[in-house]
């Protein structure tokens, strides 16, 4: 068969597949689409067959490439994994995320120890040797933190309204989450970026807490930070954890190539950083609308402490209990 008759006899089914692909894009999963969907795989296979023939018979590269593009688009639609990320968010929060965090073992301990350890260290230093404080923070920063948590200024009504809270929400969300994402990405640079950011944040927070405690501003500081801190501080630890996993894969890929190892752990890293992002989001809401509210300090301390217990219980136990045995089917 010559080229022209080949095209003539086939081009109707090529056009049919093409229009079907257009429709698949436009109305995914609508009723009419599903009713005629049965012929799609056959059309796709026919085009693959035509492509193989066109190649074998040297019908010209223009035709081969056109059919190749058509077959690729068909393959995308046919083999696409229909994902509904938003619909599976519940499972993610209830099971996938806490399970993945728990499975990290020593790497999780390392990240937590680095962040909280350096924080505690700097807390003690700033408390006991105030001179050390200025190694970490500039005098302007210290003055600004003191201004924020000075009990004398905080007592009266506070003068923040819903608008200010929303402004702070936007600020906390973009600032803190971006730090988390950068910590994660920094892990890809042999782990150094994550090490730097987790360590630095631990040191600075420790220094600020130590100093404010020493000057007697703890009465305003702790009621404010305890609530959202349960989410935010641990989100930093988990972002760092995801970054350290990437960094560790460079140094100890085990019996795989480095890129192979990175791909292998990629899934877990995506779960970790995705969960951390949700935690940052929750922390921003709490920090803006709850922590800054004019409620009594004792209520905030109580709720904040309960949140810490809740978060720790969540990571310790969420997803460990299988209800009704639905999980058993998956291997």
């Amino acid at each position: 068969m010559k080229r022209e008759p080949f095209i003539e006899t086939r081009q109707r089914r090529w056009a049919k597949l093409r229009s079907r692909l257009e429709r698949a894009k436009a109305a995914r999963g609508d009723a009419a689409e599903r009713a005629t969907a049965a012929e799609f795989p056959a059309l796709y296979r026919a085009v693959c067959h035509d492509l193989a023939l066109a190649k074998k018979r040297h019908y010209g590269r223009d035709l081969v490439e056109r059919l190749n593009a058509l077959a690729l688009r068909g393959r995308h639609v046919l083999y696409e994994q229909r994902q509904r990320p938003l619909a599976s968010a519940g499972t993610f929060i209830a099971r996938t995320f806490p399970r993945t965090v728990r499975a990290q073992g020593r790497m999780l301990l390392f990240s937590a120890a680095l962040f909280y350890g350096l924080g505690l260290f700097m807390f003690v230093c700033a408390y006991a040797w105030p001179a050390l404080l200025e190694e970490v923070l500039s005098p302007e920063q210290i003055a600004s933190f003191e201004g924020m948590y000075d009990p004398a200024q905080r007592e009266i009504g506070r003068g923040r309204d819903f608008g200010d809270d929303t402004l702070m929400f936007g600020h906390y969300l973009s600032n803190n989450t971006s730090i988390g994402f950068r910590t994660f990405a920094g892990g890809l640079l042999f782990g150094f970026g994550a090490l730097l950011l987790v360590g630095y944040n631990g040191l600075v927070l420790g220094a600020v807490f130590g100093h404010l405690t020493k000057v007697g501003f703890g009465v305003t500081l702790y009621p404010f930070v305890i609530g959202h801190g349960a989410l935010e501080l641990n989100a930093i630890v988990i972002s760092g954890l995801a970054g350290f996993k990437l960094g560790f894969a460079w140094f100890a890929p085990g019996r795989r190539s480095r890129v192979g190892k990175l791909r292998e752990i990629g899934r877990d890293c995506a779960v970790l950083i995705g969960g951390a992002a949700l935690m940052f989001f929750g922390a921003a809401i709490l920090e803006a609308y709850w922590s800054a509210s004019a409620l009594d300090a004792s209520i905030k301390i109580a709720v904040g402490a309960a949140l810490w217990v809740l978060v720790l219980f969540y990571f310790a136990f969420a997803g460990t209990v299988t209800i009704t045995g639905t999980e058993q089917r998956s291997p």
Binding site: D161, F162, G163, D164, D165, T166, L167, M168, F169, G170, H171, L173, S174, T177, S178
Partner: peptide, 12 residues
């Protein structure tokens, strides 16, 4: 304040 907060969120 609300407008700026929404702007920051969208920018993020």
């Amino acid at each position: 304040g609300v407008a700026l907060g929404v702007f920051l969120t969208l920018a993020f």
